[in-house]
Structures are given as structure tokens and as C-alpha cells.
Design a protein around this nucleic acid. Sequence first.
RNA 1: GCCCGGGUGGCGAAAUCGGUAGACGCAAGGGACUUAAAAUCCCUCGGGGGAAACCCUGUGCCGGUUCGAGUCCGGCCCCGGGCACCA
Length: 873
Amino acid sequence: MEEIYDAAAVESAAQEYWDQRHTFEVREDSARAKYYCLSMFPYPSGRLHMGHVRNYTIGDVLARFMRMQGHNVLQPMGWDAFGLPAENAAMSNGVPPAKWTRQNIAYMRNQLKSLGFAIDWTRELATCDPSYYRWNQWLFLRMLEKGIAYRKTGIVNWDPVDKTVLANEQVIEGRGWRTGALIEKREIPMYYLNITRYADELLGALDDLPGWPDRVKTMQANWIGRSEGCEIVFPYAPDTRAVMSADGALKVFTTRADTIFGVTFMAIAAEHPVALEAGKSNPRLNAFIDECRRGSVMEADVATQEKRGMRTGLHVLHPFTGEPIEVWVANYVLMGYGEGAVMGVPGHDERDFEFALKNGLPIVTVVRSATGVYDEVREPWIPAYGEYGVTVNSGEFSGLEFKPAVAAIAAALEKTGLGRKRIQYRLRDWGISRQRYWGCPIPIIHCAECGDLPTPDEQLPVVLPENLVPDGSGNPLAKTPAFYECVCPKCGKPARRETDTMDTFVDSSWYFLRYACADQANAMVDERAAYWLPADQYIGGIEHAILHLLYSRFWTKVMRDLGLVKISEPFTNLLTQGMVLNDIYSYQPPEGRKRYFNPADVHTRRDADGGEIHEVTTPESGLIRVVHEGLGKMSKSENNGVDPESLVARFGADTARLFIMFASPPEQTLAWSDEGVQGASRFIRRLWVAVYDHVSKGLPTKLDTRALTPAERDMRRAAHQALAKATDDIGRRRHFNTAIAAIMELLNAIGRCGDASPQGRAVRHEALEIAVMALSPITPHVCHALWQGLGHQTGLIDERWPEVDPAALVQDAVEIVVQVNGKLRGRVSVPASADEATIREAAIADEHVRKFIGDKPIRKLIVVAGKLVNIVV
RNA sequence: GCCCGGGUGGCGAAAUCGGUAGACGCAAGGGACUUAAAAUCCCUCGGGGGAAACCCUGUGCCGGUUCGAGUCCGGCCCCGGGCACCA
């Protein structure tokens, strides 16, 4: 082996070795245990960033580790290739999204290859290829047949200047990002997937996912949000009936039917038909409705905005008392969620309480506190008002606890047809229509006479033209007759093709199935999916904890119900990687769009008061001062990614991999800093030198474990302890940083041991082999070279993971910590086999401990076997 | 606003089931080697006191449970993620 470690030479040699032997190409093999190691595929944004390196190194460590444990390992890679950034890039530089995307894929593929991941590249896929997205279209049509896909209206952000629909990300403080125009809500027809049909199963099946982190399961359960309650009908009063020129009712859902007698107002959404009718004859109300219809559709905005309302002057009737109740329009009630109406119980709901105070509405106490905290609800609000208690002022339903009250009220409502018990989910159906170009076309044909028809299967795929360049003024597909002009499959007359495309979450909801059979031209999936799925390990960012992971679970269940797969859940084990954060710097010019600057280009200095000043030199305006917005996940939109390329060029892929794995455990959020990269590089060089020094003196004699000196036994124990720790940390705990620390400690121990005797060299040889093998999943290239340096002809990746020798771990004596009143006062060494009485005596006998006991009587003495004694005086 | 995480030295972190707080590394300071630099090796390194032995104190803040709390419970503060059209 070479004396000097040359990362570039070592890495290209190792990669060539694997490539030539097609080491990571795998076939289905029913005789071997399979291990499908899946990482979330990247969006081809242009360059890898450290979040990708972290994600794919975690996957690679597990793939290589499991392979060395004897599994048939599949680790695939692909591209989540449709999406908004390609259109944005097209707008700024005139390149078609397809070209931009494919260039990025080519570049990033090379970056991934330079990092030496054990990927089967023969299965690579990109979601923008017709051979992939045709199956989106095909399955969508099957869903349409089953009624899982359907059409209804939905609300979108509308930019009135560019006359285009904007993504939430493109709405900044209520204005369009390019035009600065105030955004309006607009209702348009869209396609939806009926995920709520699966709500119950998606919720219940979380219990069958022991390999998922609790925090993800909790988030999903809360997102689905099952609540038991009542649907209650408030019939129109005569005034409302007159305005609506029909009979009707406001329908609400509530989990607090026990408070029905506390209803003092009704709140409806601005888009509600009753609101719209009432607005026609009331200009002030109409203006308020208009105001509500502007602004954001985002839940975060709706929830934080000031709660405002205006009376309609109309009334509905209380289902029990028949009393008229005033109907208000409120900006916090959303039409898209439930029936667009809620009952207002200011006595026992905090939001209603504030609304009532502000608008001078009556507050009625209808629940008596179970703990006697209050008699009557009055200002200010206290949390106890919202708690369960016993009903009062509720007519025949007074004096009941929560559950019996709800049961009695629901039964009474059912009798009169004015309500019933119902289960409601917070989860809403998944709207998949996007008024955008760079996505999978929705395979629908609109015929003036025959209506909306599915594109016949034999005409699939509906191919997206790849040469268009969006300009920000709406979907270019809608301006391209060659795309949208078509023939009605039913009547043969000219018809118009749907120009909306699918949400890119559709693409990512099943790509992991396609990897099993990416070359299959005649079906969405084939029998190979049955071999590989479910994925044994899925790895990806915690930011996908809800949407992507929930959609993938839903999609899998739909495919199961269509008989396409046998599995119900796609991912057996989930590792949610913490985000790699970096500083965000921005500059808001007096006019136009906010610009973001990469932290690498920002210079920070201190002003006279010690405050920080951040500056960037720009070609067009010279030195400008930028604002530090804080830390955020590395993303293209905030331009705070760190390209690993320079790190790889300077130190090599192994150092980059080792550094990111050593920085923290994978689930933890990581604020980016390259401090410490020197240490990773240094450690690899030290390992190289240790192996070189060892083998340059010739290969050792055979190890004879019975003929070791105490020091040699210590060395051997250190090696096997490190192996045991690394095996457990990688295989079970997934704490790669402490596995690395254990191997560092081992190398330190090897360095301290100067034993040059034949058995001393044999022990060192074993220890070095353990260090090289245990580190190999993390730094595979250098370990590949060192393995050959240690005298092996084989490729390390084809070796079996070493076994811990239990005999090597045996210790004669153990150190026991002695506390007096919980404070550390001494340490005693006792035989490993010592019983409790011996330990107790040794502890009390310790001179230093006695000083602290003094002449005080021992009141209590706790012995923790093998660890600690606590003496209480 | 709601849901989910996190907060430990100058920095990244460790402490796996309530039992020695700071393993392993970075940075810094001191020293060795060198004409010099780099690299490498050795020593110091939470704060306070002390010549030292050692003592006191310390895991975001306030309170509690326990022989013993970074870890469990209650209340807060701050940071990050998600909130359905960024991916």
C-alpha cells in the first residue's frame, strides 16, 4: 500500500472496483433475506446540498452494513423531477423546464456518484419521463372509475395582475411575489382524491408501524384528527327563508353538543350562500365579504389573523328552543372545511368568547365547573370555562355530565331530524389539480356535449410537450392548441384536453414501487414489487412527516384495493433525518422582489456598538447590506444550501461522509458549520498511518488468544468493545456519531500500545481489521484500500461483518462509584463477581467516603449492581 | 394560532432503562520536532476557590417527585419543522 493517503486516488480506485464488478446491481433472490433501503429521492434543483449528503450517507451506511450482515440489499435512486422551481428557472433564463431539469439530473447524478453510494443505478427513474408518469395517469383513471378521484370546486390564490394561480410559497404577505398585487381567493373546478375514505384505516394502521418514530405517528394522528361529535341542524328563520327563497338550514359539527343551550350566535364563511345572499342587499356586509375573500388561503394566516365578523341581520332557529339566533359572517370560518358554518358558544369556547366580547353578543353559562372553579362565566377568560362539567340552564338536559348530556341531546336531535352523532376528521380530501405546466397532465378530455371524459387507456400517456417556456402569466399548456386540441372519445367531435397537471406529491407517492421494476413497459408494477416491498428502511427529512408520508400510505392502500400490490403499508421502518439548517440572508430592494444571498457570499463585521453588520458584494449594485433572517432548512428558494462539491474536492468523499455522520445523530436538527471537518480528515489519515506502519513490518503470526499478556488482553478487549458498540450503534440505535467515537477510541488505544511481540502484533492486526471493517459503511473507499493493505485479496464490501468474541469482553475487576447523599465521594475497585455485601463493605471502607460519613449513622444504603453505591446519612 | 421536535463547555456533541455530567472530536493556549512553515506528537481546557489534595457550583428559566434528575411531572421562555399549491 502507499505510504501517503491520497483520497482522490483511493476513491476512484474503489469506485472503479465496484463499477467493474457491478457490485450494487441486485436481482430478486428468494433464497436470501432482502433488505430494501430507500432514501427520499431528490428534487433536481441543480446541486446537491449537505442535507442530501446527510440523507444518502445514512442510507448508504445502513445498506452497506446490512449487506455485510448477509442481506440481499437494494438501494435505488431517482429524481422527483416535476415542480415549480423548474418553471421559475425557465422564467428567469428562458430555458425550457425539461432542459433545465435534465441538465440538473446529469450534474447531480455525477455528484452522487462521486460520493460512492452503493446504488443500483440500473433502476434509476425520473418522474418527468412519460414512461413513469403514464402510470400516474393510468392509476388516476382507475381511481376515477372507483369514485376515489372526483371533480369539485376548490379555492386557489389568484394574482389579478398576472392572471395566474399562485402557489402558497409565491404569496408573500398577501401579495403576489412577482406583481406585488393583493391576492384574491378564487373558486375553480379541480380533481380531488378521496383520502378521507381511508382516514380511519390511515389512523388505525399507525399502531401497526412499530418501526416508525412516535413523533411522526403523533403528527399524522393529529393531522387526520378524528373527533367524535354531533351534526346539528339550525333551520332558517323566516327572514333567512325569505332571502334564500327556500327552506333550508345551517348545518354545523360540534364536539360540544352539551353546550347547545349556550349558542348565542352562528358564524358562517364569507363564501357561504347565505352570506352571499345577505350581502346583495347590504353594501357594508358585501364589502366585508369581499375583504374576507381577499387574503391568504393558508391555515397559518387564517389562524393568526384578527378574528373579525359582521352581522347578516338574518337568523336561524335553535333546534330545541326555536329561538332565533343571529347569523354572523366571520373571517375565521372556512368554506372548504366542513359545512362552512359553526355554532358560537361564548360561554365555553375561547375563540367564541373573544368574538362575543368584541361584538357585544350575550355570554351564557350552560356548564357548571366540576371542580367548582367558577359559578358564572365572566371576563376574563379562564381555561376552566372550556372544560367538561355538568350542564345547567339547559332545560330538560340540565344536570348531566358531559357524556350523558351529549348522548341525550343527540338522541333528542335524531328524533326531530335536527341532528345525529357523527365522526368527523380534520383530514380533507387531496386536491391534485395544478394550473401549471411542468407536471403530469391530468388525462381528461372535456367535450361540450359529452362532458368530462377519461382519456382512453390506449391513448396514454398524455405526453407533456417539453419545449414550452412559462412566462408567469398562467399555464402555457392552455395556450398551446397542439396540446389541448383533441377529439372526444365518445362523439368524435373536437374537444379540449384538460390542461391542469397533477400535484407533484402524486409522483412521489409510489416511486418506491416502481424501483422494483423500473424497466416494465406494460404495467405499473409487476411481481418483483412483491419481492422488494415494503421498503425495510425509509430515510428522509422530518419535514415530510405528514404530507408525503401520508399520501404514500394512502396511495399504497388504493393500489392494494385495486389488486396491484399485496402490501398495506409501504415503509416498515422510518428514519426521519433532522434538517441541515443554514443562515438565511435577504435583501429587500425598495421595489420588486426580495432577494436571498448564500451565506458563503455574506461577510459579517461588527459596528461600533458591537452589533453585527452583514454585507454582500453584488456585480450590479456593489456592496449592499443584507438582513439575517435566522436559521432555516437548506433550500433553493432561500438560497442557503451548501454544495458539498468543494468539500469533496478538498478532502475526499470519505471525509465528507465521516464528517456529516460524526456531527450529530441523524434525527437531530443540525445547524451547518464546517468546523470539525479537519478532525474527520485527520482521523482518516491517522487510521491510514496506523495500518501502514503495522503492515510495513510484515504480516503477523496467527493470533493465539490463550497466550496473551494482561496488556494484550486489554488491547483485545478494547477492540471487541468498540466492535460491540459500533455494531449496536449502527444496527440498532442508528447513532453513527457514537459508533465513530468508539472506533476513534479504539485507534487511540492501538496507538498507545507499542507491543512488538508476535502476539502483540497479532492482537493489533485483529484490532486494525475491526476498526477498518466497522468504519467501512461510513468511509467505504479508504476502508476498501486499507482492507487490501491488511493483506486481503477480496473486496471488503463482500466480507461478512465481524463477530464480537464474548470471551474478549470478560473483565476481572470493575470500578464502583460511591456516593454519600447522592454526591460522588469515591471509587472502589471490586472483583466483577463480587456480591452486594462485598461491594457494600468496600464502599464503607473507602477512606475518602468515611470522611463524609463521619460519625453519622447510615440511614440507607443503595447498591446498583456493577455501577454505584449511594450511602444516605 | 394549532400540531411535533429541540435547548448540556468557546463550538459539534456524549451520558442507550432515573445512577460518575461533558466520552469522542473541533477551536484555542502552552510545549516538542523543524532554518522556517505545514504536518505530526505531548500537555491544559465548564465556572469559582485553592500551592496542592480537594471543595463549592453548573445541563434554557421557575417549581415539584426521588436516596439520587440532563433524563420523570407541572408552569414558562427561546429556537427549528409542519399547517394541505415549495419539495
